[in-house]
Design a binder for these strands. Structure first.
Lengths: 145, 145
DNA sequence: CCGTATGATTAGGGTACCGAATGATATGGC
DNA sequence: GCCATATCATTCGGTACCCTAATCATACGG
């Protein structure tokens, strides 16, 4: 019973999360997107949002949202529209291209999943998802969830 | 069948990995350690290593190893000793304090595990570990594994 | 109509990684 | 023995991602 750090699930999960994020990033790169943009795109599919609301929902600071939106505007995925009701607020809305990019991103994510889970049995996949979502929800780890 | 990015395991795994890393970092902070140091400490428990070997084993570039070792020397966990057989090489060896820190880090990791897995049944924990290690090994994702 | 709160932005900092360039030492061909 | 080349550690500059604090415009309540 050596009890090493690398034996811990914490370590395994950290490394695996990082590796997965990289793979996902590689798949998104051709689209001009990065992982952190996906939550934004997906949120905006439902309805336009102000930037502060966006920040709070995905769990980052408003300044990060500014950067992300600059990038997303750069690829033509979103538009900032001054809210006529409250002229401080920028309403962020998805463009048609943004909707398309969001769908492509979802496909990319599905491909990464298929790639990652390739070696697992259906039972294992189910158990994995169940355990991960259980952890995420009991610890309130998912921003916007 | 909405097929959203946030439904993917890739997304879940990325977020969870990040959150887990943060928790682990918080536990390590009082020790003066950071997550990335742990693999180094653990590796050196077996035997002293040159920095390049260290870099390749944990999967980072040599320049990163320089930084990590500066930090680890700063807390007295390791020593750099010029190799007499090849004077280009610095042999990195654990100090007694380094050994102690490594044990403390393992305890911290175990605590994070207990915390994360608190809400899961023993069966779920086993299935989770099994699935994660399966993914890690089939994709060669674990540096030093 | 003035003080205060709110929304977006900018500026600067911290962590963690990378690649390329540098300097010291080793090694193999001749 | 000597020189080109390779290897090891290091430094430097850059990228990605996040943060806080300060700034500026606009809204809102007394």
């Amino acid at each position: 019973m050596t009890s090493q750090v690398t034996d811990s699930l914490a370590f395994l999960l950290s490394k695996l999360g990082q590796a997965t994020a990289e793979r996902f990033a590689d798949r998104l790169a051709p689209l001009g997107l990065r992982p952190r943009h996906c939550a934004v795109l997906q949120l905006l599919e439902a309805a336009p949002l102000g930037q502060l609301a966006l920040a709070r929902t995905i769990g980052v600071t408003p300044s990060v949202v500014v950067d992300m939106l600059d990038e997303l505007e750069g690829v033509g995925a979103v538009r900032r529209v001054r809210d006529t009701a409250d002229r401080r607020r920028q309403l962020v809305e998805l463009t048609d291209e943004g909707r398309e990019l969001s769908r492509s991103a979802a496909k990319a994510a599905a491909q990464v999943d298929a790639d990652l889970l390739g070696g697992l049995s259906p039972d294992q996949r189910g158990a994995l998802r169940e355990a991960l979502t259980a952890i995420a929800t009991t610890h309130d780890l998912l921003p916007g969830g």
